[in-house]
Amino acid sequence: MADHSIKGKVVLIAGGAKNLGGLIARDLAAQGAKAVAIHYNSASSKTEADATVAAIRSAGAEAVALQGNLISAGAVETLFADAVAAVGKPDIAINTVGKVLKKSFTDISEAEYDEMAAVNSKVAFFFLKEAGKHVNDSGKIVTLVTSLLGAFTPFYAAYAGTKAPVEHFTRAAAKEYGARGISVTAVGPGPMDTPFFYPAEGEDAVAYHKTAAALSSFSKTGLTDINDVVPFIRHLVSDGWWITGQTILINGGYTTK
């Protein structure tokens, strides 16, 4: 019987320096992970990456921060190679990388579309590919998507549309990697109370999102709190291993599928 506990496991988190990714890194270290490798995109996130590394080490785990822009297959290959060299082959691989664009369909430029597709679809595809090559048997792979995959809404064609392929990537990877005991899932949080959310939204939209979930009145901000998402990630990469090939929307009743 495979060991599905987090204790003693090696973790790789793309986008693991701050916000939800940083909290997941801290949490898994606190749950007894042996080592956590976190990725961050640019030098502007180095301070947060260093703080997350320090927190992981304080929890008793090994930690390393790896910088890179992952929008090429080679960059994702390098990330996995560097992580393996630094802390060993991962048992858990989590991709939180994403980019939001809220804009009218007719105003989205080709350059904007290409960037959204690169960050939200291409990175996810090659992360899943490299995870399939490097994650240990009975491992866990999770990709962050969005609850907008369950919405009927304007202005998010480029964002939700370039996250949508991850559902298909997840199902294919789950089937292909299942023979090795690896579970593969996608997690779609609702609008989260992080700096990732606010720049894309106007005041009216923020006010709407803060009341749109069925449980909004019981949330501190009305939005999805990253602290409420982390326990689900923890479950999926441990005792929840039997869930695979699925997209799980964690949003307090903001959308459903």
Rank of each mutant, 00 (worst) to 15 (best):
G161W: 03
L23S: 12
T96Q: 09
W242R: 15
Y159G: 01
Q67H: 07
G252F: 07
V11I: 13
G139H: 05
V10W: 04
A205H: 08
V97D: 04
Q67F: 01
A118N: 10
G16Q: 05
E167H: 12
E112I: 09
P191D: 06
A207D: 12
F126A: 01
I233K: 00
H235C: 05
N136F: 01
G202T: 14
S104L: 10
A179N: 08
T52V: 11
P231N: 06
S217I: 14
S45G: 08
V10R: 12
A75V: 07
V206W: 10
D193R: 13
A158R: 06
Y40G: 09
P231T: 11
A85R: 13
K175N: 14
A81P: 02
L79M: 12
G15S: 09
G161K: 05
L79F: 12
G16Y: 05
A14D: 09
G253Q: 06
N120M: 03
T185F: 00
F127R: 00
S42W: 08
A160R: 02
A29Q: 05
F196I: 07
A117F: 15
D27M: 08
N251S: 04
I233P: 00
G181D: 12
G178V: 10
P231G: 10
G150H: 07
N251M: 04
S42M: 08
I24H: 01
D225Q: 12
A35R: 12
P154G: 03
H168W: 08
G32V: 10
P154W: 05
E110I: 09
P195F: 08
R234Y: 02
G181Q: 11
L149M: 03
L148V: 08
D114I: 03
G240I: 00
V187D: 01
